[in-house]
Design a protein around this nucleic acid. Structure first.
Length: 766
RNA sequence: GGGCGGUUAGCUCAGUUGGUAGAGCGUCUCGUUGACGUCGAGAAGGUCAGAGGUUCGAACCCUCUACCGCCCACCA
């Protein structure tokens, strides 16, 4: 027996050494990367398991949700890595050709916001002070540093991913993919440019998507003003300057005497105006006075009414949140200041009817906290309702909905499918342009042939959409960048060689030897439920559209990791538990076990250091079990003892007590295997934990003490065979969950091959 | 306003197709230092949120109610 067993298990001394061993073995890579002829990554056929397994031809693939290069990993990442690594190690031990592609996400707006904040804090400068080029340099430096930290942290957690295929959402290959996709969608008429009302974040100076909005409850005042013969209600007096349409429901008997299109002279904020009556069913007769004026430039609902009736739209507020000249004496004022002053003036004019307290939800930007000010802007959109010829005339919405509705994609837990459908059914066109600098610049170039009347590009501008910049002089690239989810939507196939591998193929089918052919669709997509819409839906959209296939067969959604009190872990609360810290203190195995046991999919979980400490003890318990077994079997030649279990000349073990114990063990393993195949890792882990501690250690080892002391030579031998066999088996079964300590023990037992590529102890169907 | 989830032992949570409730931690008692930087044996502790229904039988299925949480939403 190795002397190491005389001391308690020491994860800190063990884990990094073991990871290195794995990484250098080349077994993380299922086969040579098409573009990398690394000596370490070209030996899949040497996988001991691949030789013997009937499942040799099967593959298992998964892409890692790329962590944002905004800093460091948190517990949520640790959970993700653990779950995925369990699936991957399980598949590998089943003899499947297993690929797990790691990567990181440039996370456009999130990363830019972090760097901007940092620069402002240190130097008091904003990005415009630095200029685009210099600023991007800073972001890239930060991202590179962050990338380095993150990839080393992924290793700490024990993730057995294929580093030879690592990707970044903003690297060269992914850029090619993004541009190809943009062009493809543009050529299909799915991407268009238009004046639409968008969510403008005055603080971040950019457009954001509907999904990046968070609503905050705000107490304000609801005003009733006299507007000619009407009383109108509003919570936003400062936008009312341009209001020249007064809208009511066509069925409202109170206003039956007014007709659609009727002109009315009335006194308003800055003097007399002519208002036009509009009848529209969007009006809620019950709310306020049943009459409102509209501000199409700064309100989504108003914009839609204006579109329906072809009304004029005027901008009242500028991009910085200040009033424009249309506001007369109030021009240049900030919204908050203007509000009071406008009310004051109206009050002086005797036009204020009443004021009442009012609570509503204020839209704010998730990243910057700025109050969203809707604006009409020229933006790029993805049309989700336009039939796609190449896909049988189905719309993107339908392409997203169908595979989930038809069961081709299974979401775990199932109830999220409802949420998914609800989201899709309410989906509007996706605004993909962002006025930020960090990200994929929109692959569109403009050339002016004259002066346009508008500040933006108009009819005198030629436009070029392509993968490479156009030839010739005078072309200028669109200054905007793409929504980060546009590039992450391609992740399942942009990481597997699309579009270049697709080009070499015929009839739209990827070349036979490419990663795309071998590994796409991927098997599982594992991620947090909070990005079901952002990401999962977009991946389905992109893959269904571009390749005509689903991106993955199963979506496993995990919950949020919370602190012991159930609060979200956050920097501002300072209640975060650093997974790397934990791994150093208790071992990555302990952290993994804590994150898995009892953690059902889609449900939030709480963790605390005490919990993790408990699982550190588990690793040590296993360590001592091994020590006991090795100590008590070392007197006999181990090859003799091991031979017995498989039958052979000496099949003593299948008799007597050991037979019962073996059956019990086999039943447990079959149950665990079923749990693994059906994604109940929380149960599998718990059952193995329980068996190890309370069946093997507490019961079997205790009984064995007597047998080994007082039994006949035959009984002793049988018992030793059983114990060694059990240790072998249990190490294999526990390996996906606690890979480090099991690999370490396995090695100390004198095994030459790595545990990570041993065959799973139970035959499986999948 | 719409949708979804939760409510099970002091705490954190399981309970896979309905068969009179389980784990971890904690608490209490006893025992252990020749596998165990400790471990073991045992104990206490739950009318499974409430009400009604289906069933031979319900934590689990159906209806309603209460409370908590989350997501979505353009009521000016």
């Amino acid at each position: 027996m190795n002397d190491k067993f005389l001391k308690p298990y020491n994860p800190a001394e063990t884990e990094s050494r073991i990871y290195k061993l794995w990484e250098e073995s080349g077994f993380f890579a299922p086969e040579a990367h098409p573009s990398v002829a690394s000596a370490k990554a070209d030996n899949p056929e040497n996988l001991p398991i691949a030789e013997s397994s009937k499942l040799k031809a099967k593959s298992f693939s998964m892409v890692m949700p790329p962590p944002n290069v905004t800093g460091v990993l948190h517990m949520g990442h640790a959970l993700m890595l653990t779950l995925e690594d369990i699936m991957v190690r399980f598949a590998r031990m089943q003899g499947k050709k297993t690929l797990w592609v790691p990567g990181t996400d440039h996370a456009a707006i999130a990363t830019q916001a972090v760097v901007e904040k940092e620069i402002y804090k240190k130097e008091g400068k904003n990005r415009h002070d630095l200029g685009r080029e210099e600023f991007l340099k800073r972001v890239e430096t930060f991202a590179a540093q962050s990338h380095k930290t993150i990839t080393s942290q992924i290793r700490v957690m024990g993730a057995s991913c294929d580093w030879s295929r690592e990707a970044f959402t903003l690297d060269e290959k992914r850029t090619e993919a993004v541009r190809s996709m943009f062009k493809m969608m543009y050529d299909d008429g799915l991407i268009y440019r238009g004046h639409r009302i968008v969510n403008w974040d005055p603080k971040g100076q950019t457009t954001i998507s509907d999904d990046e909005i968070v609503y905050r409850e705000e107490k304000t005042v609801f005003y009733y003003f006299t507007y000619g013969p009407f009383t109108i209600g509003t919570s936003r007096p400062e936008t009312k300057f341009g209001d020249k349409y007064v809208v009511m429901h066509p069925d409202d008997t109170r206003y039956a005497e007014y007709t659609d299109g009727q002109k009315i002279e009335l006194e308003w904020i800055n003097g007399p105006i002519t208002a036009t009556v509009v009848k529209d069913t969007a009006i809620d007769m019950e709310f306020g006075s049943g009459v409102m004026t509209i501000t199409p430039w700064h309100d989504t609902a108003d914009f839609e009414i204006a579109e329906r009736h072809k009304l004029d739209k005027e901008q009242i507020i500028d991009e910085r949140g200040k009033l424009l000249p249309i506001a007369g004496e109030f021009a240049g004022l900030k919204i908050a200041d203007a509000r009071e002053k406008v009310v004051e003036k109206l009050r002086a004019k005797g036009l204020v009817v009443k004021e009442e307290p009012y609570t509503h939800n204020l839209a704010t930007a998730e990243r910057t906290g700025g109050t969203i000010e809707p604006q009409i802007k020229l933006q790029w959109f993805v049309d989700v309702n336009k039939p796609v010829k190449a896909r049988g005339g189905k719309t993107l919405k339908e392409l997203m909905r169908e595979p989930v509705a038809g069961g081709k994609i299974k979401i775990i837990p199932e109830h999220f499918e409802k949420t998914y459908f609800h989201w899709i059914d309410n989906l509007r066109d996706w605004c993909i342009s962002r006025q930020i600098w960090y990200g994929h610049r929109i692959p569109v170039w403009y050339k002016k042939h004259g002066i346009d009347t508008e500040q933006e590009h108009g009819t005198n501008t030629e436009m070029f959409v392509g993968i490479e910049p156009p030839q010739g002089d005078g072309w200028e690239q669109d200054p905007d960048t793409l929504d980060t989810w546009f590039s992450s939507g391609l992740w399942t196939f942009s990481t597997l060689g699309w579009p270049s591998s697709a080009e070499t193929a015929t009839a739209g089918k990827p070349g036979p030897e490419s990663d795309l052919a071998n590994f796409h669709p991927t098997d599982v997509l594992e991620t947090g439920y909070e990005i079901l819409f952002f990401w999962v839906a977009r991946m389905i959209l992109m893959s269904q559209y571009a390749l005509g296939v689903i991106p993955f067969k199963t979506v496993y959604l995990h919950g949020t990791v919370r602190d012991a009190k159930g609060r979200k872990m956050s920097k501002s609360l300072g209640n975060g538990i650093d997974p790397i810290d934990i791994a150093q203190k208790f071992g990555a195995d302990a952290a993994r076990m804590t994150l898995i046991v009892g953690n059902t999919p889609g449900t939030d979980m709480r963790i605390s250091e005490e919990k993790i400490r408990g699982y550190k003890h588990f690793a040590n318990k296993l360590w001592n079990i091994a020590r006991f077994i090795l100590e008590n079997t070392s007197s006999s030649p181990s090859h003799l003892l091991r031979g017995g279990i498989e039958g052979g000349e000496d099949d003593a073990i299948v008799h007597g007590d050991e037979k019962k114990l073996l059956d019990e063990q086999q039943n447990l393993l079959e149950e665990v295997t079923r749990d693994m195949e059906e994604y109940r890792f929380y149960l599998a882990a718990e059952k193995l934990y329980h068996y190890t501690w309370h069946t093997l250690a507490d019961r079997i080892l205790e009984e064995s003490k007597t047998v080994l002391k007082n039994g006949t030579p035959e009984e002793k031998k049988r018992r030793m065979q059983f114990l060694l066999h059990t240790l072998d088996t249990l190490l294999k079964a526990l390996h996906p969950f606690i890979p480090f300590v099991t690999e370490e023990i396995w090695g100390l037992m004198g095994n030459k091959e790595l545990l990570m590529v041993q065959e799973w102890p139970v035959a499986t169907n999948s």
